[in-house]
Amino acid sequence: MTNLQKKSQWLIQHFKKEWQIYVLLAPAMIWFFTFLYTPMYGLQIAFKDYSIFKGIAGSPWIGFEHFQTLFENDDFIRAIKNTAILSAYNLLFAFPAPIILALMFNEILNQWYKKGAQTIVYLPHFISTVILAGIVITAFSPSAGIVNTVLGWFGVDPVYFLSKPEWFRPIFIGSGIWQEAGFASIVFLAAIAGVNPSLYESAVVDGASRWQMMWKITIPSILPTILIMLIIRIGNLLEVSFELVILLYQPATYVTADVVNTFIYRQGIQSGQYDLAAAAGLFNAVVAFILVMTANTISKRYSRTSLW
């Protein structure tokens, strides 16, 4: 019997024996195929002069013309710059927030207080982004907003926060943290819960303070989790939460607020330039792919932790 025959026979045996596993796998595969792989066929319009009437296949190829147009467009360059800056801020402020939160929760000894505090910070995650943005807009409103009211007590004139480009980034990052930090802390809390309790007991007997235990045991122990979350985060770096931007920005703040995804949205959906938008989207995806690969490789090399 040849090697190939052996292998195919093994495969048949394997399927006969384990078919249930493949049935379980099927829905996920179908979902991926239908919603993530099939649409990739449409990606080709990034390289075509697309017209709805001619269809995807019928439209003529034009090479990299759309990419050229994009990179000659100052708005697109600005969107890339804004995306990069917001992503950097996100990484700097929004990424550590849930870790710090989890570490703080871990230090709360009173169980009731701990549970109460956790529930309160988880809540914003369950509010729809539209409502959340509504709350933010109301809070910062110059007329009735709580922020300006409080500032008023100190004699500060009302600030039009949401129409000032310099305020967009702090408000956006802050709202993001408010919305997601609590819920994201669950992952880290789970990681902390998984730390062997006798490590702490041993450290207590050795004379470590709570602060030392946090730095020398808790943080190193959850480092693999932090790295995995960081890799995932870096992969999604360019996906600055598009809904929140759309809901919070206005033409006056485009200078700092317009990101690649909102640019794509305005070009593609609002102006109907599907081909140009597809090119921008493809660019986004390629950059994201490179980022994930890089982060994963670096993490694998330095900490033995990696997504795959």
Binding site: N196, S198, L199, E201, S202, V204, V205, D206, G207, A208, K216, I217, P220, S221, L223
Partner: peptide, 19 residues
């Protein structure tokens, strides 16, 4: 515990995996 001047060896050794 730290001021009792005792040292304890645990069943599962309690070694720090990152050190």
């Amino acid at each position: 515990p730290k001021d009792r001047d005792v040292a304890m060896v645990f069943q599962n050794y309690a070694l720090y995996p990152h050190l």
